[in-house]
Design a binder for these strands. Sequence first.
DNA 1: GAGACAAATGCAAATATATAAATATATTAT
DNA 2: ATAATATATTTATATATTTGCATTTGTCTC
Lengths: 101, 101
Amino acid sequence: MMKIQELDADRLDMAANMLKAIAHPMRIAILKHLEAGKRLTVTEIHELLGIEQSTTSHHLGILKDKGVLCSRREGKNTFYYLKHDTLSQIVDCLQRCTCGE
Amino acid sequence: MMKIQELDADRLDMAANMLKAIAHPMRIAILKHLEAGKRLTVTEIHELLGIEQSTTSHHLGILKDKGVLCSRREGKNTFYYLKHDTLSQIVDCLQRCTCGE
DNA sequence: GAGACAAATGCAAATATATAAATATATTAT
DNA sequence: ATAATATATTTATATATTTGCATTTGTCTC
């Protein structure tokens, strides 16, 4: 039998891990490109952002591992996309909050 | 004269710093209590969450420093509150995304 | 199978973050 | 000024993250 508090703590940890995964300039930039159900390959992202292939893959791995993205291999390519569409809200919110400061 | 890319990079950094500030179980718990324009003192939060006073102040300092919270001193107390009401969206979104996994 | 392309992994150095304990500052009341 | 209460800062140690490079694994075409 598990206490409610533990459940809460577990969910808080999960939420913190998701946010930690997103909380990186490059990974926010990645999410901006994946709004509205878009699917992109590792190479497309690495070219869009101008960062190393291995670095790109690493960032995508973190986002996938923490439940932010899903991936699907199709032939030579692996497409990445948002696990929950609603996650775009976070990017939108950040965009609004960093407008005028 | 500043390039657009630099502006983008600056905003991404600012956004990442805000998120990094939020991405911690205790700090998410703090934000949950500050929804809907609520204002709470350091002591209230430290009693609500059952964590050390100095730890509480430290967390609040991080949230304020990174632009998530504002504070206002009134007598002996310092009240903390959300800088942008819209930031509650992030907590709401996390709550939805960590429901069933 | 060999070669080409796409993606993932292991590694190491630099950098960043968390935590708690101790200390310091600010405000009010006496 | 002193004591009491409320916050904030400092410090040190432990731990985690970022990054590029080199390597490896997976997939397709020939």
